[in-house]
C-alpha cells in the first residue's frame, strides 16, 4: 500500500484538528482543544481503484509564542494550509507557513483551505482575492469542519496532486 505523510499547517484555532476529526472520525466538537506538539491520525482514501494511506501530522497552531517545529515537516509529501475565513491574518500566516514548508520539503503540493464556511456571515476574507496572492499554486478550497463541506474533497485533492506529481 502507498503511504504518504502530509501536514496540517495554520494559525492557532483555525480548525486544523477539527478538520482531521471530521475526516477521520466524522465528528465535530464545539469544544476547542489546543494541540500541543503534534497529533497523528491516519486516513485511507480510495483513488482510482488504489488505496492511499494518508498519515496526517496535525501540527500545533502557529503564533508568535509557538513556533513551528521544522523537523515535523521533514518527509512530508504535501500539506494542507488552513486559514480561518473570519480572521484575515490567518491567511497571511498560511502563506508564511507555505514558504517554510518549501524551505524544508521543496516544492511539494500544498492546498490552501479557508475553513469555517458555516460562518460565512462573519467572513472577512474573499477567496478570490486570496487566489490572487503571490505564489498561490491552486484555487483555495472552502471547507467547514462543522458541516463537513469540502473536507474530504480537500484531502482527496491534495492526495491526487501528490500522486500525480510523483512526489
Amino acid at each position: 500500500m502507498i503511504r504518504k505523510k502530509i501536514c496540517l499547517l495554520g494559525a492557532f484555532s483555525v480548525g486544523k484538528t477539527s478538520l482531521v476529526q471530521r475526516l477521520v472520525h466524522s465528528i465535530f466538537s464545539e469544544r476547542y482543544q489546543t494541540t500541543v506538539g503534534v497529533r497523528i491520525e491516519k486516513k485511507t482514501l480510495m483513488l482510482d481503484g488504489n488505496d492511499v494511506s494518508l498519515v496526517i501530522w496535525d501540527l500545533q497552531g502557529e503564533d508568535e509564542f509557538q513556533k513551528l517545529r521544522e523537523s515535523y515537516l521533514r518527509g512530508s509529501s504535501g500539506a494542507l494550509l488552513v486559514a480561518d475565513g473570519t480572521r484575515p491574518h490567518t491567511v497571511d500566516i498560511a502563506i508564511l507557513l507555505r514558504d517554510r514548508l518549501r524551505d524544508v520539503c521543496g516544492n511539494v503540493p500544498a492546498e490552501l483551505l479557508i475553513n469555517k464556511a458555516d460562518l460565512t456571515d462573519e467572513w472577512a476574507v474573499d477567496p478570490r482575492a486570496v487566489a490572487a496572492l503571490d505564489g498561490a499554486d491552486s484555487e483555495p478550497i472552502v471547507t467547514s469542519a462543522k458541516t463537513g463541506a469540502g473536507v474530504e474533497g480537500a484531502f482527496e485533492s491534495l492526495a491526487r496532486r501528490i500522486l500525480g506529481g510523483g512526489a
Binding site: 503511504r3 491516519k42 498519515v55 523537523s71
Partner: peptide, 13 residues
Amino acid sequence: DLVATMFTAISNW
C-alpha cells in the same frame, strides 16, 4: 502507521 509516526514525532520533539 500510528505507532511508527508517533515514534518519529516524539523523537523529533
